[in-house]
């Protein structure tokens, strides 16, 4: 069963002033339940736009997207999914725990459950700074806080935009182990974008490459391992020349 299906998706940003026009065009895209999928591509290729279109944060010009077989515009569709944006803003004056309690209360009414969930998640992701104010956190701690926020609600599907931004090697491993544990235990699905390619080998089953708004290459992890050796090599062979130019 597919947790996500996107068909004939088009999102057009017309040219405005000095900003260039951009067209995201994805003919067919799906993610199976329990699968970890990555979309990789250079900056400005349309990764974040596609993720935001899935969540109806950016409106489609054409096409349809379904999350768990529900139209993505319906708020019920978002009961299946949790999202980590690449850029986020939490109130700096609050402690991490207070912020998580506040934001968690939007969807979770049971305060005791929420409290317990925060404590457990913090243990699993080794976040021992729940009482610190957000404005006093380092970049890595802020990213861990954002991950705590994302995993606060137990979902079947997680959309993670650059989840490893600012994390050190130890913290990154914690997050990867946590995701793999969730996959094993809860059969979750993940759609991820990242520039940190070595980690993708460890977690993703399917990789899609995107350039100028279109997915032009897709492969399974095993196909990539067989043909290119690693995702990094796969990526460099596709984009290396562009990067050199």
């Amino acid at each position: 069963m597919n947790i996500l299906t996107a068909e004939k998706v088009v999102k057009v940003f017309p040219k405005k002033g000095k900003s260039r026009s951009f067209r995201l065009e994805i003919d067919q895209f799906s993610i199976e339940q329990g699968s970890f999928t990555a979309i990789l591509g250079p900056n400005g290729s349309g990764k974040t736009t596609f993720l935001k279109a899935i969540l109806d944060l950016k409106f489609l010009s054409e096409g349809t997207i379904q999350i768990n077989r529900i139209d993505h515009k319906d708020k019920l569709a978002r009961k299946t999914v949790s999202y980590l944006p690449e850029v986020y803003s939490f109130p700096g004056d609050l402690s991490v725990k207070t912020m998580l309690l506040d934001f968690g209360s939007i969807e979770i009414k049971d305060r005791d459950y929420l409290d317990e969930r925060i404590t457990n998640l913090a243990k699993q992701l080794k976040a021992d700074f729940l009482d610190e104010k957000i404005k006093a956190l380092s970049k890595g701690m802020r990213q861990t806080t954002a991950l705590l926020h994302t995993f606060l609600t137990e979902r079947k599907f997680y959309i993670l935009d650059e989840p490893f931004n600012g994390l050190d090697a130890v913290q990154k491993k914690k997050v990867i182990d946590f995701l793999l544990e969730l996959k094993k235990r809860e059969n979750i699905s993940v759609l991820i974008t990242t520039h940190i390619l070595p980690d993708i080998d460890k977690i993703c089953d399917t990789i899609h490459l995107i350039r100028e708004g279109s997915i032009f290459q897709s492969a399974s992890n095993s196909q990539i391992a067989e043909k290119y050796g690693s995702v990094e090599q796969f990526y460099l062979e596709q984009f290396g020349e562009e990067a050199a130019l």
């Binding site: 944060l57 949790s82 999202y83």
Partner: peptide, 8 residues
């Protein structure tokens, strides 16, 4: 994006 990505 944090608020409206939820079931809100």
């Amino acid at each position: 994006s944090l608020i409206f990505s939820k079931a809100v």
